[in-house]
Amino acid sequence: MEDISLHILDIAENSIRADAKTVEITITRDFEQDLLRIEVIDDGRGMDAATLARVRDPFFTTKHKKTGLGIPFLFQAAELTGGQVTVDSGPGKGTRVTATFHWGHVDRPPIGSMAETILTLIAGHPDREYIYEEREGNRVFRLDTREIKNDLENVPINTPEVLAAIRKMLKEQIKFEM
């Protein structure tokens, strides 16, 4: 993965395939501890203890293939910076993936384009809800598709004009790109 926004897209796509109705993504820059913290929380079907125990094994997957690289890639990227990843999950309880990266570490990947990640999720699966929040000091940006859908009334959120308007807003408001 070239950047952190692609890791987040990958984790969120896992949430969608776990039948999550809502995916909540939070990115926080912690100046005091020099950390970047990302959190992806879903209300999908969750994992049992046996699955959770093997979550970072690249040769374990619940899909019909031989490898499951997404989570192991995230562990590798975070740990290279002295950070860590925790995965909390239970059947019927959803899943929470938390990753920390040392902001100033030379191996920290760039954050990349969170705007493109959020747009890809909305356009690809408009029936789900997404909450995106980024925090950096006193600055807080929050997007909640439930509020946008409420304002749109019966216009689908994946209508090209709506996506273009959301893209414009995200490009203006999202500050995490480095």
Binding site: F141, R142, L143, D144, E147, I148, D151, L152, E153, V155, T159, E161, V162, A165, I166, M169, Q173
Partner: peptide, 18 residues
């Protein structure tokens, strides 16, 4: 919460229904 402007939404809704 960042919001789309009312003008944005009104224009999009009118065009969509048309």
């Amino acid at each position: 919460m960042a919001k789309l402007t009312i003008a944005d939404l009104k224009k999009i809704k009118e065009e969509y229904h048309a």
